[in-house]
Write a protein that binds this DNA or RNA. Structure first.
Length: 790
DNA sequence: CTCTCTACTTAGTAAATCCAGT
DNA sequence: ACTGGATTTACTAAGTAGAGAG
């Protein structure tokens, strides 16, 4: 059952409307009347005047098209979203007709600050610009850098004045850089458990055993069942087997029985669980100690947390979706493959004994500490600083500042692409159409992908079969996006967009890219001409944050309880997640969980009903007043009977266990046990409960306990009501969240300053919405005025 | 241009940890 | 205190985007 989140905006809403992405995944009904906003005061006057003019033009032109933006058919989130669509028609190498490419203004020449990128295998390179420690850290004499990032010496870059100008990418990022390299996974220790081949136990070389174990561990997972995964694993495993002639000849995957190894792992897991507290603690301490050297790096004298300092352990490549290489062996990384990035004067960390580093470079334009090439896809892996670091924080803030900058240009950009939808140059027309989709549906850019990757697409790489035309200018999207997550959505679009898609499709045909004259590079070049640094992804950030700001403001009512406010927050968050199509697989226990919460609510209601009857018995006038009348009477008699039976049963259990405990105690004190008859005596209390409940039910009246007062009962009912409301909120939240992942948008798309300002305004502690790591990551967002807006 | 390479952000899921309800 | 389910964190795959080579 699809749970609709429907928010109908009051139609008198005026400004800011321009900023809301068209889709909002159909969650918001846009009012037809519409006023462009012009609320930035920080714009230079000259520009402002110019903007006014443009806005007027936009309005004139948009009037006609505006209704088309309104009703978007409901997005069907629930339908087999993950069904991996079989790879359709392998994209044949396309011929791109390169006509006139001239209209796009030449990309500005990048600054000449050359990178002089080193060949990884090169000899060490002397650093270019070298100078003594910068003023960045006033290097307090005598004060050592403390362990914890929490200490007062921690560098709060966001409190510094400068860094106003967004630096270009090839700028120098550091002056001195020191770290202890990377942590390698421990050597493989053979376990000796024999798997079977053709029913017979076999002995494998340690190398072969290791790879077999990689597979065995995944036996019961989706990967282990995937034929492509099996095949790729098996091929690579056979290579390993061949390397040691003592290995048995293994010809057929189907004759392999990995179960013994799998069982061994299951045992290991259980043993691990069964470890005592002490053992667990010791293991943890040991682990912590072993990784301590790698935890921090020194950047320009400042202590910064390192992120993924661990070299990825060997294993089987777990490609997502239908990745042709999934299951291939990801080999152990040797120090000889790893290049370190260090300051020239930094001490070079010792490589593991008997090994050496691939090389050590001093690339001051890069922020990575170490890098290596992975063997499955030949892609490059990096070790970076953690999300809490200065580098990551600054670039995070810059990302959001860039998105905010887009606010100043978005009206013009929209105006332009609406105009260009009718351009006679198909190149321009395609670009405009794509921009429309990127802007209104928050699609990704869609770079082209290779044959040896999963077949997924984004905007520019959408193919014929990914959009179908429905009546009423409605486009139906159905494609696999990043991570092979299905995007399925029906959207009513501008008639001109509809027409364009129709034309483009006709020109290409099945299996071909719809925007055959468009590349992500071309698109981004065009966007760059509007605003420095503007690219397709900025629209996602922009639309996510502006949507959140707008929604959270609208949904949160000042007098709500904190629980209600949190629900509103999550709902706003959810809108963004839906917009960006961030999904998760519904947990297998979801239904169960929901019904459990339902039971809890009913139990509360039952309690409430009991209290109410007591209240009425105590003070019949209350019944007339009706303040505590049942707000909803969905407690069926049948359910009540059952529930009461349960209550009695539980009471019995309680009595029994209490009895046992008391007996245990007596035994400990060397005293005689209580006889069974005693238990029987005690159990009578449960029977009495049973009788009492039965009687109460019959008479429909409850004698209040002696010391009960009207006041007390009323309070108790109010408290129960609160709990009912809270639990209901929880249930709603969970149900609506079933297949939507809020984390990604919170982590990457929603400007944290919106949240900080919201928490302050509504008196909600930030810990309620940000986890510990998020709080840390977003420390830079704390220093804002209370009325900050995105 | 087109293709490849590099460096960085974004993403879902597995593993680890937390916490509420007995 | 113990669980087991929920939440958080770790992990690493999969994107974006720009540069540079050919």
């Amino acid at each position: 059952m699809a749970v609709g989140i429907k928010i109908v905006k009051p139609s008198h809403e005026s400004s800011d409307e321009d900023d809301i992405p068209l889709s909002q995944r159909n969650l918001i009904k846009k009012p037809a009347n519409h006023d462009s906003s012009d609320d930035e005061d920080d714009v230079p006057l000259s520009q402002k005047v110019e903007r006014k003019k443009r806005v007027v033009e936009v309005k004139a032109e948009q009037v006609s098209s505006e209704e088309d933006n309104v009703p978007l058919a409901k997005r069907n989130l629930d339908k087999d979203r993950k069904s991996k669509v079989p790879a359709i028609a392998k994209a044949i190498k396309r011929e791109i007709k390169s006509d006139s490419e001239d209209e796009i203004p030449l990309a500005q020449k990048k600054k000449a600050l050359k990178k002089t990128k080193s060949e990884p295998m090169d000899v060490d390179k002397p650093s270019r610009k070298r100078q003594a420690d910068t003023k960045a850290t006033p290097a307090k004499p005598g004060k050592k850098v403390k362990k914890d990032a929490d200490d007062p010496n921690f560098y709060k870059w966001w409190e510094e004045e400068q860094n106003t100008e967004i630096e270009s990418d090839d700028s120098v990022k550091w002056t001195t850089l020191q770290h202890n390299g990377v942590m390698f996974p421990s050597e493989y220790v053979p376990h000796g458990v024999k798997m079977k081949y053709d029913g017979q136990p076999i002995t494998l070389s340690p190398e072969a055993e290791e790879v077999a174990s990689f597979f065995a561990a995944l036996l019961e997972t989706e990967h282990g069942q995937n034929p492509v995964f099996q095949k790729n694993f098996f091929n690579d495993w056979q290579e390993v087997l061949k390397q040691d002639p003592s290995n048995p000849k293994i010809k057929e995957f189907s004759k392999c029985d990995f179960r013994p190894i799998w069982s061994k792992f299951e045992h290991d897991k259980e043993n691990k669980k069964a470890m005592t507290k002490d053992e667990k603690l010791r293991a943890k301490e040991e682990k912590l100690k072993s990784e301590e050297p790698y935890l921090y790096a020194l950047v320009d004298g400042r202590k910064e947390k390192v992120g993924n300092f661990r070299i990825e352990p060997p294993g089987l490549f777990r490609g997502r979706g239908s990745h042709p290489k999934t299951g291939k062996l990801k080999r152990r990384v040797q120090p000889e493959q790893v290049t370190l990035n260090l300051g020239v004067d930094a001490k070079i960390p010792e490589p593991p004994k008997g090994h050496k580093w691939a090389s050590v470079v001093h690339d001051q334009t890069a922020t990575w500490l170490a890098t290596w090439k992975e063997n499955v896809n030949g892609s490059i892996k990096y070790v970076f600083l953690a999300a809490t670091s200065t580098w990551k924080g600054q670039s995070d803030m810059q990302k959001f500042e860039k998105a905010r900058e887009l606010k100043k240009h978005v009206v013009r950009i929209r105006n332009d692409y609406n105009r260009d939808l009718k351009d006679k140059l198909s190149e321009v027309r395609q670009r405009a159409t794509a921009m429309y989709l990127i802007d209104r549906l928050a699609l990704r850019a869609g770079n082209e992908k290779g044959e040896d990757e999963a077949d997924t697409v984004g905007c520019c790489s959408l193919r014929y079969e990914h959009i179908t035309l429905e009546p009423n200018y409605t486009l139906h999207f159905d494609f696999l996006g990043k991570d092979s997550i299905r995007y399925e959505n029906s959207v009513e679009v501008e008639p001109q967009v509809y027409k364009n898609i129709k034309i483009f499709k006709k020109q290409v045909g099945e299996g071909q890219m719809i925007f055959d004259r468009l590349t992500t590079t071309g698109l981004n070049k065009h966007l760059n001409s509007y605003m420095k640094g503007l690219s397709a992804k900025v629209f996602r950030t922009y639309n996510a944050s502006i949507t959140f700001q707008q929604q959270v403001d609208e949904l949160t009512k000042p007098n709500d309880t904190v629980a209600d406010k949190l629900l509103s927050y999550n709902r706003a968050n959810r809108q963004v997640a839906v917009l960006c199509n961030h999904q998760k697989s519904a947990s297998k226990t979801h239904e169960q969980m929901i019904s459990k919460i339902g039971d809890r609510i009913k139990a509360f209601k039952y309690q409430r009903m009991k209290l109410r009857k007591q209240l009425y018995a105590l003070d019949p006038k209350q019944k007339k007043k009706g303040e505590f009348a049942e707000p909803e009477s969905d407690l069926e008699d049948e359910w009540i009977v059952e529930h009461e039976a349960n209550l009695v049963e539980k009471e019995k259990e309680k009595i029994k266990s209490r009895f046992e405990k008391q007996n245990d105690k007596l035994i400990e004190e060397k005293q005689p046990r209580m006889p069974q008859s005693e238990l029987k005596e005690k159990l009578k209390a449960a029977d009495e409960l049973h009788d009492r409940l039965k009687k109460e039910r019959k008479l429909d009246k409850i004698e209040p306990k002696g010391n009960m007062t009207v006041e007390k009962l009323a309070n108790a009912i109010r408290k129960i009501d609160e709990r009912i409301a809270a639990t209901k909120n929880q249930a709603t939240d969970k149900e609506e969240n079933k297949e939507i992942a809020l984390g990604t948008s919170k982590l990457n798309y929603i400007d944290p300053r919106i949240t900080v300002a919201w928490c302050r305004k509504h008196d909600v502690p930030q810990e309620k919405v940000f986890s510990k790591t998020l709080l840390e990551k977003f420390r830079w967002a704390q220093t804002i005025p209370d009325d900050w807006k995105f």
